[in-house]
Amino acid sequence: MATVAKRCECANGVTDKRKRDRIWSKCPHTVTVYWRNGGRGSRLQTATFKKKEYDGDHWGAANRWAKKVEGARALEEVVKAPKRKQRPFKEAAEAFLATRIGSESTTAHYGYSLRNHVYDFHVDGIRFGDLGETEVSREHVKALVKHCEGRFAPNTVATIYIAVSAVFADLRESKVIETSPCVNVALPAHVESRVFVSPTLEQLDILASRLHGPWQLSVYFGHAAGMRIGEALAVRMNQLVEGNEGYVLRINRQVLKANTLAPLKHRKPEEFREVPVADFLYEKIINHAEAYSIGEDGFLCPGKSAPHPHRPTYYEDFRDGVGAAELPEEFVFHWLRHDFAARCIRDKMPLPQLARIMGHKNSMITERVYWHLLQGSVASARQMLNQQYEKMHLAA
């Protein structure tokens, strides 16, 4: 038996079938016909009818299709869902990337995630990129997330998911689909909720020693300046500037995974971020520049045969260094950045200042990411309160 129904919420709570059908007949949302060509164990078939495709008679078109299904089943014929003229997901996603308004670096990150992790993923024997833009279901997205969860860190899985979700959000705004298949898809636990391991300086040196020579300085940029990996790989020698209060790095670019330069996160191309340079890091930079003959405007961490490092090759060296330094297997470059922030918080650096150094959009983001470090202990709070009352008694 073929069932005709809608998934919209227009008739929620209406139990009377006639009233429900009357409400559905007037609302503009799509109508779906459900049927099986075999018994209960056979695959559920669906056909969706949109108002714009049937001159406003999508409800009648759905009923006519249901009658066709019933007639064919009576003759034991197989009925396949009608094919709609639609773009493959890959084509729809590329169109979204080409017309997206927003940060160039974000668009590039979306493109990298989609092209390297989504399009070629096979689900039900079909490449994800070949699925129709209206055919992708929540189950398809869940299968993609499950596949990525077994291969990547939680942050990377979230990045891939966000790229897919952005495409469907755009399709929804364009009225191509009614609801996004990415809604309420559970993601693996985010790295920000984990307890990070703080490497010793000895471990840091071992980790750096396993990287290709000119890349070794990037480890210290992460640990001593809180830089992201892309930022560390894009630093030039002439960005080391002596100011009134000491040396700073004025960074304004990051290397994306596609080995291209882009503006910093949350900043326009002409904007830069000042990062204070500790004496420890200054000495590392000077020694590094002399050892590898880095010119005044040269990149401090250049690629082997290209201006910038090939990220997969970089990560191979980094993983080797993690093992040699006996750090946890899940240790990633971003942990160096988190360790920098944790040390600044422990040493009572004001949150707005830390937010500026880290390149966060505002201090609220810094507070959210490092809330577990900002809470302090009950003992420290008790000590602080005792000191307050001791001062009040002395004043009295």
Rank of each mutant, 00 (worst) to 15 (best):
N238Q: 13
A158E: 15
S209Y: 00
A92W: 06
S218I: 03
S209L: 01
Q254M: 13
E296W: 12
E77G: 00
L187K: 08
N12S: 13
L394N: 13
R22C: 02
T156I: 08
W335P: 05
R346P: 03
V123R: 11
R319C: 00
Q239K: 07
A47Q: 02
Q86C: 02
F299K: 02
D57K: 15
R228E: 06
S380M: 10
H122D: 10
A379G: 03
A163V: 15
D130Q: 09
R20Y: 08
T260P: 01
R87E: 15
G60H: 04
N287S: 14
V141Y: 07
E104T: 13
V191W: 09
A72K: 09
A234H: 07
I206R: 06
G230I: 07
E367D: 07
S113I: 02
K142R: 14
A2Y: 08
A92K: 06
R127T: 02
A355Y: 03
R84E: 15
R273S: 08
Y282M: 12
K90L: 07
S25Q: 14
S103D: 11
I365Q: 12
F333W: 10
E94R: 11
T46E: 07
S218Q: 01
Y247T: 03
L281R: 08
T200E: 08
Q254H: 07
V241L: 00
N63T: 06
E192S: 14
I345Q: 11
S193R: 13
K146P: 01
G71W: 01
G39I: 00
I162G: 01
V185G: 11
A258E: 14
P276Q: 06
R64D: 10
E290N: 13
K83W: 03
N362W: 04
K68V: 00
R138I: 03
D124S: 12
I357A: 07
E330G: 07
I345M: 11
H266T: 09
S180G: 12
D347M: 09
S42M: 05
A93M: 12
Q203I: 01
S174G: 00
G295K: 11
L327D: 05
K51Y: 01
